[in-house]
Simulated scan of single mutants.
Amino acid sequence: MNVLIVEDEPNYSDTLEMFIDELGYQVIGVAQEGRTALNLFKTSKPDIVLMDINLNGEMTGIDVAKEFQSIQPTPIIFITSFDDKETFEKAKETAPHAYLIKPFDPETLERSIELALQRAHTEDTKVFDEESNVVLAKNSFFVKERNRLIKVDIDDVFWVEVEDKYSILHVADKKYVLRQSLKDVAEKLDPSVFVQTHRSHIVNASKIEDIDLHLFVVRINGNEIPLGKSYKDVLIKRLQML
């Protein structure tokens, strides 16, 4: 998950970078004033922003947050040394996903990030309830793995297979176990890219290396994926053939 830090105190921005690294997330930029923050936001498109309210320069963190939200709604966690009501009321106008008072510990930051993502990508449902441990953002899954939320770009998915009541998401040399049925996962994938090859497998067609019509397997990343006879003709028709 990509995090943008907007903080004008170098010592504190270094601390935030260390916290983010310990949580397993990626810092994609650090800005000390508003204009630099806007440029980074436009070019890096972060998943979440940690924003100091009192910044050097002509723009406050609240001003910058308003600009961010007008460009692309993004979870923002405000950070400030001031806990006065006036500052809080001004910050509320930008609908932040959390509001932290300095100093705070990594655990508090981690909980705030998880809650921010929950609020950003869900409405009435809980992210970590007994029915689900995955949230689908616009072009990615957020998979909970222990105490981390791992962003998985859908384009990076090689294939999905079902095992008992779980679906297994295969990405390069890693896999994630989702408490979702194959049907539920399929409904969230682009049908112009993903195709079902077997009653228990869905593959990313752009990742197919070859198709063995004798053994009825599809090879992806050196792995053999079963190709059911009833799915073969549909797959062949959908591929661009020469």
Rank of each mutant, 00 (worst) to 15 (best):
Glu89Asp: 06
Glu89Pro: 00
Lys90Glu: 09
Lys90Ser: 08
Ala91Met: 05
Ala91Ser: 06
Lys92Gln: 00
Glu93Cys: 01
Thr94Asp: 01
Ala95Cys: 09
His97Ile: 06
Ala98Gln: 10
Ala98Glu: 13
Tyr99Phe: 13
Leu100Tyr: 11
Ile101Thr: 09
Ile101Met: 05
Lys102Asn: 08
Phe104Lys: 04
Asp105Gly: 04
Asp105Arg: 07
Glu107Leu: 09
Thr108Val: 15
Glu110Arg: 12
Glu110Asp: 10
Ser112Phe: 05
Ser112Asn: 07
Ile113Phe: 01
Glu114Ser: 06
Leu115His: 12
Leu115Val: 05
Ala116Arg: 06
Arg119Asp: 15
His121Pro: 08
Thr122Gly: 11
Glu123Tyr: 03
Glu123Cys: 00
Glu123Asn: 08
Asp124Ile: 07
Thr125Ser: 14
Val127Glu: 12
Val127Trp: 10
Phe128Ser: 14
Asp129Val: 08
Asp129Glu: 08
Glu130Asp: 14
Glu131Cys: 06
Asn133Asp: 15
Val134Cys: 11
Val135Gly: 12
Val135Asp: 04
Leu136Asp: 08
Leu136His: 15
Leu136Lys: 15
Lys138His: 15
Lys138Glu: 15
Lys138Ile: 13
Lys138Gly: 04
Asn139Gly: 14
Asn139His: 14
Phe142Pro: 01
Lys144Asn: 11
Glu145Cys: 14
Arg146Ile: 14
Arg148Asp: 11
Arg148Gly: 10
Leu149Trp: 11
Ile150Asn: 14
Lys151Trp: 03
Val152Cys: 00
Val152Tyr: 00
Val152Thr: 00
Asp153Tyr: 04
Asp153Leu: 07
Asp153Phe: 07
Asp155Lys: 12
Val157His: 00
Phe158Tyr: 11
Phe158Asn: 07
Val160Thr: 03
Glu161Leu: 00
Val162Ile: 07
Glu163Asn: 13
Asp164Gly: 14
Lys165Arg: 15
Lys165Ile: 08
Tyr166Pro: 11
Tyr166Ala: 09
Ser167Asn: 14
Ile168Pro: 09
Leu169Thr: 03
His170Ser: 05
His170Ala: 02
Asp173Asn: 09
Lys174Ser: 13
Lys175Arg: 13
Tyr176Ile: 08
Tyr176Pro: 08
Leu178Phe: 10
Leu178Asn: 08
Arg179Ser: 11
Gln180Thr: 07
Ser181Thr: 13
Ser181Val: 04
Leu182Ser: 05
Lys183Pro: 00
Val185His: 01
Val185Leu: 04
Glu187Leu: 13
Leu189Cys: 07
Leu189Ser: 04
Leu189His: 05
Asp190Glu: 06
Pro191Ala: 09
Val193Phe: 01
Val193Met: 06
Phe194Arg: 00
Phe194Val: 03
Val195Asn: 08
Thr197Phe: 02
Thr197Met: 04
His198Tyr: 11
Arg199Tyr: 12
Val203Asn: 01
Val203Met: 02
Val203Ser: 05
Val203Pro: 04
Ala205Arg: 13
Ser206Pro: 02
Lys207Asn: 03
Lys207Asp: 03
Ile208Ser: 03
Glu209Asp: 09
Asp210Leu: 09
Asp210Cys: 11
Ile211Thr: 06
Asp212Asn: 12
Leu213Cys: 06
His214Asn: 08
Leu215His: 10
